[in-house]
Simulated scan of single mutants.
Amino acid sequence: MTLVSRSRITAIGTYVPERILTNEDLEKMVETSDEWIVQRTGIQERHITSDDEFTSHLCIRAIEKLRDTYNKSLEDVDLILTATTTPDYSFPSVACQIQGHFGIASTGAVDLNATCAGFSYALHLANGLITSGLHRKILVVAGETMTKITDYSDRSTCILFGDGAGAVLVERDDTEAGGFEATVMGTQGTGGISVYRSGLSSSMNGIPLEGSGKIVQNGREVFKWAVRTVSAGIEQLLRQAGVDREQIDWFIPHSANLRMIESICEKANIPLGKTLQSVQLMGNTSSASIPLALQAGVDSGQLKTGDRLLIYGFGSGLTHAGLIVRWGVPAI
């Protein structure tokens, strides 16, 4: 059933750290090569934080870019939803740090951890809360410092990850049907052992964990799950919205790995040329990868107001969420 939405994305801003880690840099750190990395992932370089730069700093810079680019006031934001799996602290939340920095007088603030699907989940929640009438203006932020939890002695994972942040405003729109046309989400919790970061517990379902607080991933299993799950979710979204593939202007999946994106496009019968991604120059930035890809589309002039987007996040959990959205951000 098509959703009756009363919300619209009205502004975007992103930020990545200045420092760049190239494939050539990684060749000096582990046994790898630029050719090997590009062939398997498509990644050429990634941005990484300095020792004293954390997720809240990236998120704040992205929000400042949003505010200044689109001349948006933040004073009447009534909820801050921050998607992150790498907060500065266990608590206070990144969302609370954002509220404190901008001095927003009356707003809720909460972090959401759905890993690489976090931005999609946060958009889904923002639309639901605004459409229900509970909120009118929600700041959706996704920020990650994945390189701080990356094991740089593990050549299979250290080549993947980068840092970055993106923010969008989701606002009430009573003038016409809103910008959200369909949504789908799901979870396969039994697959959590395939990609995790160890924490307070040293085992999962009786299986000892590795990594000492760093990312551990079974890339082959995650790859197979993502291609199968996302392609099936795309079919559900198209049926729910009552649209054909040809009516989708842009596909924006989580930028985990260019080869994974290619496989998803092939299985879902979506042209790679209609796909926006951020993985080649920014690596896998987890929840931030989709807003970074959207920003790239804006900057290149490819993404236009009114375009119909199919957004799909997927990651550890295992969890996934997809949406069909009308792009409501005005051209600048």
Rank of each mutant, 00 (worst) to 15 (best):
S5A: 03
R6A: 08
S7I: 15
R8G: 01
T10S: 13
L21G: 07
E24V: 10
V30L: 07
T32D: 00
D34T: 13
D34P: 07
E35F: 09
G42C: 07
H47E: 08
T49A: 15
S50I: 06
D52Y: 07
D52N: 08
T55V: 09
C59S: 15
L66G: 02
L66I: 01
D68S: 14
L74A: 00
T84A: 13
D88V: 04
Y89N: 12
C96K: 06
C96V: 08
G100N: 14
F102T: 12
I104E: 04
T107M: 06
V110E: 03
L112K: 08
N113S: 05
C116A: 15
C116T: 10
A117C: 02
A117K: 00
G118A: 05
G118K: 05
Y121W: 02
L123T: 00
A126P: 11
S132V: 13
S132H: 11
V141Y: 00
Y152S: 05
S153Q: 12
T157E: 12
L160R: 13
A167R: 00
V168T: 10
V168I: 11
G179R: 09
E181M: 12
E181N: 12
E181H: 13
E181A: 13
M185T: 12
T187L: 09
G189F: 09
S194E: 13
S198F: 11
S198L: 11
S202P: 06
S203E: 15
G211V: 11
G211Y: 14
K214L: 10
I215D: 14
I215G: 15
V216T: 11
Q217S: 13
G219D: 10
E221R: 05
F223Q: 04
V227Q: 06
R228T: 12
V230P: 00
A232I: 15
L237D: 03
G242W: 08
V243S: 06
R245K: 11
E246I: 11
Q247F: 01
I248S: 01
F251R: 06
I252T: 00
S255Q: 00
A256Q: 04
N257G: 05
N257T: 02
M260N: 02
I261F: 06
I264S: 02
K267I: 14
K274M: 04
L276K: 00
S278P: 04
Q280W: 07
L281F: 10
M282H: 15
G283Q: 05
N284L: 06
S287N: 00
I290C: 01
A293I: 04
Q302R: 12
K304C: 01
D307W: 02
L310N: 07
I311V: 11
I311A: 03
Y312Q: 08
G313P: 02
F314H: 03
G315S: 08
T319W: 01
L323K: 05
I324K: 00
I324Q: 01
G328Y: 04
I332H: 14
